[in-house]
Amino acid sequence: MIDIIATYAAALSLLVGSGFVLVGAIGLLKFNDSMTRLHAPTKVGTVGIGMLLLGSMIDTFISGDTSIHELLIMAFLFVTAPISAHFIAKVNIHRRACDTPPAPPRDSTWSTLDSPEGESQ
């Protein structure tokens, strides 16, 4: 009885994961701005692959030898996805592919701004 329930749970988590993968890929293809496109594929990395790994864990539980090694991959992806997204956002800002941040207010409290007249920076 519990095997049948576990098989249905594994199939359900596989379907949810593949749905998130598909939605992320469609968002990567259809959005119209670099920073907006950055939003969609992060769901593929966290929720989509997380649900596929959950289905894999439930499947090993069905077949007898339960393994929770997949939690390692899940934790690694959850840690590294924001870091790579941050780096790609920095690349977008660096290449001016988005609205650049506003210029800082022009105050002269910094010592490097108080250079004497006639002296080049």
Partner: peptide, 24 residues
């Protein structure tokens, strides 16, 4: 991909999709 950031993002997504293919 019009910019470099889009290409890096697409490559990252392709790696993650390949990971999912191996898991399945």
């Amino acid at each position: 991909g019009p910019t470099v950031g889009d290409r890096i993002l697409a490559l990252d997504t392709m790696v993650i999709n390949g990971l999912g293919l191996v898991v399945v």
